[in-house]
């Protein structure tokens, strides 16, 4: 009798393979792809999606979803913009306010689900997305705002030996979240609360708090993404709230092995997913592909990833049956 199932790393290797193949194709298609500067710019592009994907992944593991991550990031950037317009120049205060705002919005999403018992968070976070879109435009008077202090933009701008600091921060956060998910009681509770909240509650775990935690993390990371976006673009713009940021985050998670049924997904896979999305977008830009076509391809990538998830599941079940037979 074996201890562990073999080949559980297959889906990770598959995702890594997809990224490598994508890079090979782009290297052949464009002379400018495989240059240090371009690769660093991909990492820079990865940051935003990677951050919003963290919360998205936690929510997906609990069989939920957070469709407000993109709008939340934009809204938090707009809050900072509003304060800058109002004369606030202290970067530390600005960043703290943004992070608190993001986390608070996540908390509301969580409480709507766990305390007011709204059904699937699909609807409540979709409502939140629209609310934040409007709120972002309201606080900025529908104007683009620039002139942010250096302390705020630093996270999106600074580099170490050409490597964007924001990406280094993301890697650190991913390592922390990976350890949290795989090695701690809280992480195990997140996977279990997603699979069966009632059984988890009756096992003495406060499922409601575990779920709320996931949405708070999601809001917090979205705020961080918002700060990064200020640094990268130098502005904040409430209209960005309806950009397909949420879709990119979902795509990154699903490509990385998460499932809408909950209970699955890893930080490592999600990082690869975010890299694939950023590389695709970068490749489109290098090859001057129209943005409408970009959106179509990304849509197909999501559908393909979900399809892959279904196929993987079927194959895993078959393998399990064979394994059981071999034991018998």
């Amino acid at each position: 009798m074996s201890k562990r199932r073999k080949g559980s790393g297959n889906s990770f290797l598959g995702t890594l393979g997809a990224l490598v193949i994508l890079c090979v194709i782009l290297t052949i298609a464009s002379r400018n792809f495989l240059t240090y500067n371009n690769l660093m710019s991909i990492l820079k592009q990865t940051t935003f999606t990677a951050l919003t994907s963290i919360g998205m992944l936690l929510c997906l593991i609990t069989a939920g979803i957070d469709l407000s991550v993109g709008a939340n990031a934009t809204f938090c950037a707009c809050i900072v913009g509003m304060l800058v317009n109002g004369g606030m120049k202290n970067s530390f205060v600005l960043i703290i306010v943004a992070l608190i705002a993001g986390a608070a919005i996540g908390l509301i999403n969580g409480l709507l689900l766990t305390r007011l018992h709204l059904p699937h968070p699909f609807v409540s976070t979709l409502g939140m997305k629209n609310f934040l879109w409007g709120a972002g435009l309201l606080v900025t008077g529908s104007q683009m705002i620039s002139g942010f202090p250096d302390g705020v933009t630093a996270l999106g701008v600074a580099t170490v030996a050409g490597v964007p600091v924001s990406f280094i921060v993301v890697v650190v956060i991913y390592i922390i979240m990976h350890v949290l998910l795989t090695r701690t009681a809280l992480g195990r509770s997140i996977y279990c609360a997603g699979g069966n909240p009632e059984a988890t509650r009756l096992s003495g775990i406060n499922s409601a708090n575990v779920l709320t935690f996931c949405y708070v993390v999601s809001g917090f990371m979205a705020a961080l993404a918002g700060i990064v976006s200020i640094g990268r673009s130098g502005i904040c713009n409430g209209a960005n709230a309806i950009q397909p940021y949420d879709t990119d985050a979902i795509a990154a998670c699903v490509i990385g092995g998460a499932s809408f049924m909950g209970g699955k997904g890893t930080m490592l896979g999600t990082m690869l997913g975010a890299l694939i999305i950023a590389t695709l977008r970068n490749g489109f830009a290098l090859l001057s592909i129209d943005s409408s076509v970009q959106n179509m391809v990304l849509g197909l990538v999501i559908i393909g990833a979900v399809l892959l998830d279904v196929v993987r599941e079927t194959m895993a079940q078959k393998a399990r049956r064979k394994e059981a037979a071999a034991q018998a």
Binding site: A185, N196, A199
Partner: peptide
Amino acid sequence: KGQGLVLEQSIPNNLILANLQGFT
């Protein structure tokens, strides 16, 4: 199924669920 187990999770994950602190 509804209240006892998290069916999608592994045997060990279910076995430790009511005493996560004891396994930490």
